[in-house]
Nucleic acid binder design. Structure first.
Length: 261
DNA sequence: ATGGTTGACTTTCAA
């Protein structure tokens, strides 16, 4: 089962680039972030015609997540538990069953800038809610893949120029400590373990500004975290870096893994 | 050098 995450930065602007990538990648399950669309405005028919089952959790203008799957999507849950007043659409879960049942948790973690301020407070509070949900998922003892745009640079080697991020919400010690607190529950960073001693990257995001792509001034902020039961099934991982050079690209590229499931 | 780009949606915010 090939499972991917792709922050597409606007479904309307990215139909062509996303469709090209879907047709080439051969994924079974894809979580999307920043669809920037209401559920009723999502171009469902276009993707259904290509054989995808679709669940969306959108909002007007910003944020929004979705799951596309060649397999049926079961037990869908929209929204991160822990704050009924949270209106931002950033989290979706579903179960897909191939040879084994796998729980998929797709997330778009808040950016948190500027720091300090209410947006950073929201980021930290959201991460605390994610920590609680992640523990529940581990307790299920299912194979779980918790993946998406985490908006966290885990280590200096995950940025081409770590110095320019030192005051940024994506790289502040408190942000990184919150991610580690989740990982230390027992999650495996699938991209990192592919090449544990890598000196740089692999990057998953290059800003539209400042010619970041041409300078390879990237960061690694899209992550694939595996429960132990999923890590035991891990067969392959990848970052589709070439997607950043496509026509009208997103600022993120897809990250993916293959499970023996 | 305090810039620069893109998307959604209006004139400005979010990233």
């Amino acid at each position: 089962m090939k499972i991917a995450s792709f922050n597409i930065n606007g479904i309307k602007a990215r139909i062509a680039a996303l469709t090209d990538w879907l047709n080439a990648a051969g994924a079974d399950v894809v979580v999307l972030q920043e669809i920037k669309s209401l559920d009723e405005a999502f171009p469902r028919a276009h993707f259904e015609d290509l054989g995808w089952n679709i669940e969306t959790h959108g909002q007007k203008g910003f944020n929004g997540v979705a799951i596309l799957s060649k397999l049926p999507l079961e037990d869908v849950m929209c929204g991160l538990p822990g704050d009924d007043g949270d209106e931002q659409a950033r989290y979706i879960e579903a179960t897909v069953t191939g040879e084994k049942a796998v729980r998929i948790a797709g997330l778009y973690l808040p950016n948190g800038n500027p720091v300090p301020g209410p947006k950073y407070d929201y980021k930290l509070a959201w991460m605390e809610r994610l920590r609680i949900r992640a523990a529940e998922l581990l307790a299920s003892e299912m194979p779980v893949v918790m993946l998406g745009d985490y908006n966290i640079i885990p280590e200096p080697r995950d940025a081409a120029n770590p110095g320019k991020w030192v005051d940024d919400a994506l790289f502040l010690p408190q942000s990184r400590a919150m991610l580690r607190a989740i990982q230390w529950q027992g999650w495996t960073d699938a991209i990192r373990i592919r090449d544990p001693w890598s000196a740089r990257g692999p990057f998953t995001f290059w800003d539209f500004q400042g010619g970041a792509w041409n300078k390879d001034d990237g960061i690694r902020i899209d992550h694939l975290l595996l429960s132990p039961q999923a890590a035991d099934l891990l067969a392959e991982t990848g970052v589709d870096r070439e997607a950043r050079a496509a026509e009208k690209p997103s600022d993120h590229v897809p990250v993916w893994l293959r499970l023996a499931a």
